[in-house]
Amino acid sequence: MKKIFFLLTIAAVLLSCEKAIMPDSASAGAEETFETLWQTIDRGYSFFEYKNIDWNSVYQTYRPQINNNMSDRDFFNKCSEMLNILKDGHVNLRAGFSTSYYNDFYLNFPANFNKEIIDRNYLRGFQVTGPLYHTVLSGNIGYIYYGSFATPFTDDQLDAVLTMFNSIAGLKGIIFDVRNNPGGDPANAYRLFKRIATQNTLLYKTKYKNGPGHNDFSAEQESIIEPATDKVMYTGKIVVLTNRKCYSACNFFVAGCKAFSQIKIVGDQTGGGGGQPTGFELPNSWSVNFSGSITSLPNGFIIENGVLPDIAVALNPSDEAAGIDTIIERAKTLF
């Protein structure tokens, strides 16, 4: 009995040690959660200097407006308002009952895309392979619409599409339309680049936040694509169509297109999103996502606010009324 008691005592002591050593959970109140939110962005967000944002003054402005007695909804709205100062579509506050977002990167600009016109007058009779909607336009020009990098296509699917286009006698080239593509997984972009690259090609360079200081970054790391010579390649001319709603992984894709001489970018500047999103959980169960890196083209151009097209073209309202996509028509003249 004494032995059992002795052993149980040891167990109890060990349990107590754990509770004494491990930090307590941070308070879930609005004030402490705000402190955690502000500090998380302060230590992790990558574009303060690029966007010339004084995050300390933002604290001075918003901290007095926060108190533990405010409702969750009011607290969420105030935090969302603060985060929108960053003007970054990769910054989101997720509260469960709502998610904050910044969409002015495309809402403040013309749409330059009308899906009805695409469906009725260009994609009529289309084929679909995975998420790739494709057809051959008049003038013997291939056309592919890819609506979201979040929807993956396989190598086999890409083989099927490229084999089909390669088999068309006298095909002048391919229009690859990524307008209104909100982004997703960059791996889908690399899958495409591997079929275009004829040698190892530098796409862009990225430096990552590696410390709490606003200028604490890693050395620049190069993103190099290698050709997939064991798969179906495409060596013809490509015109990529873009607009402001092309964001995040789509933005990275368009940035990578700049590395290939056979690709021309036509349309509007992309919406941006040049930082890799990263996340952290707040003490009150909410979580915040924010950009934690800076990517630039090989020439040093930072892609956070978008990639410029080679040929800027806007959708003409009279063309649109007539069911004509000005940007596609302009792209067709480049073949």
């Binding site: 690399y190 680049f193 590696n210 993103s223 694509i225 990275f252 890799q276």
Partner: peptide, 13 residues
């Protein structure tokens, strides 16, 4: 993990 638990999705490799 690295700072901010980063996994380099942007890097093809």
């Amino acid at each position: 993990p690295y700072y901010l638990n980063r996994i380099e999705f942007i890097d093809p490799k």
